[in-house]
Design a protein around this nucleic acid. Structure first.
Lengths: 249, 249
DNA sequence: GCAACCTCTGAGCCCGCTCTCAGCGCGCGG
DNA sequence: CCGCGCGCTGAGAGCGGGCTCAGAGGTTGC
């Protein structure tokens, strides 16, 4: 399977230090999931290719020489660990993000994270995948755009992704996991209106069956913690969605 | 087997006093283990190459001129000690870390380590290997980064790696082996959330088949000893992992 | 051979988190 | 000015992650 789709990304292309675009190979036997993932990553500025099994993954890797690989551990032909070795043989410095089922306890993840590689468990949210991939790239020092470190800033609101710490005006703001991911999405898209559907698609896992109503709920939680008693930064755009803006004075 | 992998490390590259990167040769006939080891060492800032048997090890050493060698005593062709002699012929000041089975001939190992080299018994944890290697380098005065000595400090928490001694606010904290290694990992990654899987991959031996539950257990032990009655430094990040932070005031 | 210690398993409990539901406020259009 | 519907928020149920205790098995040291 091979999907070079030159759609212009929603963000400026991620580039290596030499200016060429970053390439990622997505390997999953579920074509729907591979499609969703590649769409999201393309939107993030990656050049994406997909593969459906281990053999074609290695073949595609040889051709593409990807900077990163998103790799399902459970593949129809080979297991992920074998693919990993082949990938490293092709390109030794490749970053790998594994996808693994939560209940498949012994998926042979042992030792994976030791080399700096990482993994997420299904079902995951797209923000999760994107963030982990950014983390890998940053630690490997590969992306020019990520060299400024793991800190996200909008106005006096600061998020340290590695420490999972958020401060507003220097004061610590304690957030739950979902609140954190929602805020991260908002902070990565400041001054930009995000619809509830967009938020749902990116922050909640792809198999979430619930109502868009939860988004309102979590926005309300965030407001209580982030805007509490201060000049509000989270704004509702009726009929359209939500925006995060630095306070204007 | 030959894997020069120039991946940017998760930590700043370890360098010699002249600024060139430190090189290590990993020799083990188990490719999975060699893969995991080389990943971990590369992440630590080493330039790594691997070999699967004695003959290719010597060949690789001649080419690479490594500063250190991680060497399995049991090899398919030659035994580790013969390889050692060849290595010393190539480079007399090379540091060697032996990997050996628990029930191996202790006296021969003892003879070897008298020369300043060291060994760990299988199954080992990655933290163990990494730490031993750092120790060798430090004593040999080879690494620029390690010249400041074997002391690790986070807030008022101090660890002397060589003496295996930990103090908090000047008070001695007595730790078991596993507790010590877990704390070392946390102290080498302050302010950074580590997932249970990451902790398991580094602190527990690679063949450990158990549950991530043990991590919680040992965190709880550490808390009783390190945080006991004091301002806590070990924090849980629900759904993500654990962080060690100096007390903020 | 025994005692002390360490490591790990299992069970049970607690509590924070997530989500559903329902009622209300309020903006906006008629 | 009124009514509708979107959005907001409080209450609470259910769940699952995380903590702790108790105890078995293994190892070390005396």
């Amino acid at each position: 399977m091979n999907t070079p789709r030159p759609r212009g990304p929603g963000r400026p292309a991620l580039t290596r230090t030499d200016g060429t675009p970053l390439r990622v190979l997505v390997v999953d036997d579920d074509p729907d999931l591979a499609e969703v993932l590649s769409g999201a990553l393309r939107y993030e500025g990656w050049e994406v290719r997909t593969a459906g099994d281990g053999v074609s993954a290695v073949a595609a890797a040889r051709e593409l020489l990807p900077d990163a690989v998103v790799l399902d551990v459970m593949l129809p032909d080979t297991d992920g660990f074998a693919v990993l070795r082949s990938l490293h043989a092709v390109r030794p410095d490749v970053c790998v993000l594994f996808l693994t089922a939560r209940d498949a306890v012994e998926d042979r993840i042992a030792g994976i994270t030791a080399g700096g590689d990482d993994y997420v468990t299904k079902p995951f949210s797209l923000e999760e995948v994107v963030a982990r991939l950014r983390g890998l790239l940053r630690r490997a020092g590969m992306a020019r755009q990520l060299e400024d470190g793991p800190r996200l800033t909008v106005g006096d609101l600061v998020m340290d992704e590695e420490a999972r710490e958020v401060t507003r005006g220097g004061e610590l703001v304690e957030l739950s996991r979902t609140e954190f991911e929602l805020l991260r999405l908002l902070m990565r898209n400041p001054r930009r209106v995000l619809s509830k559907a967009q938020i749902l698609d990116r922050v909640w896992s792809y198999d979430f069956g619930g109502q868009a109503h939860v988004v309102e709920l979590y926005i309300s939680y965030l407001r209580k913690k982030v805007d509490a008693g201060r000049e509000p930064m989270i704004h509702t755009v009726r009929g359209a969605g939500y925006v995060l803006k630095p306070v204007t004075r």
